[in-house]
């Protein structure tokens, strides 16, 4: 899933300086699961903001509404009437970096601010602990690396590792960070598949240097949205 972390409170408070009627929009999917931006987090943040602004003698009218997914028009639509009738002078989004952009695009006349920092695609290691596993590079090499991503898990993103800095199974940057290529070696060795990494991975053409559009086979851009 996509994981995110709430921004420091002071940063959120500063962004909303000068705005007095705000709708905080939560997202019920990824950021809700990773405890950053679901219904509960919207309520907590709103309470904190109300208190802080009241103490500063600058009260704010902040409301909350959490939709299923901010990255999907179908769910965003339910905000139309709320926003139309609410007279908000700003929107706060607790969705990931994708969701907030769809929200901002739908209501372009209202300033929209992020309440979370999106950090990536991660697995749920334990409650509240998420570990990044994919950089969505658009050219998956996991088949030859034993299901361990060197782009994400190697601090240098090496395609031909491990480098000389691998340190008793850890990365040179920290003993807490496992060396991806050490793990790749161990796993492939256990599968008797070391040949998979004996051949050189040649320089790759990076496919994530421009915005990517993805259209599944058999589908096309709706005519009204195509240029």
């Amino acid at each position: 899933m996509i994981v995110a972390q709430r921004k420091p409170f002071a940063e959120i408070k500063d962004m909303l300086q000068g705005y007095n009627k705000v709708l905080n929009v939560g997202c019920g999917t990824c950021v809700s699961v990773c405890l950053a931006g679901g219904e509960k987090e919207v309520a907590v943040l709103n309470t904190e903001l109300e208190m802080a602004r009241r103490l500063a003698d600058d009260p704010i009218d902040i409301q909350g509404h959490t939709i299923e997914r901010q990255c999907d028009r179908e769910y965003l639509a339910e905000l139309d009437s709320i926003i139309e009738e609410g007279g908000f002078d700003a929107l706060l989004s607790m969705a990931c970096g994708v969701g907030i952009q769809f929200l901002a695009e739908r209501y372009p006349h209202i300033p929209t601010f992020p309440a979370v920092d999106t950090s990536g695609l991660a697995v749920n290691q334990a409650v509240g602990w998420y570990e990044e596993r994919c950089r969505s590079c658009s050219q998956c090499v996991l088949g030859s690396t034993g299901g361990i991503c060197p782009i994400t898990m190697c601090a240098k993103g090496l395609l031909n590792g491990p480098c000389g800095g691998t340190n008793k199974g850890s990365c040179e940057i920290s003993s807490d960070q496992p060396c991806a290529w050490f793990r790749i070696y161990e796993r492939l060795s256990g599968q008797d598949r070391l040949d998979a990494i004996k051949k050189i991975n040649t320089a790759r053409g990076w496919k994530n240097q421009t915005p990517r559009n993805l259209i599944q086979p058999g589908y096309m851009k709706p005519e009204k949205m195509a240029k």
Partner: peptide, 14 residues
Amino acid sequence: MGVFDIDSIQLIAM
């Protein structure tokens, strides 16, 4: 930002 556009083995090959 660490660039690492190519790695050492790819640099040798280049």
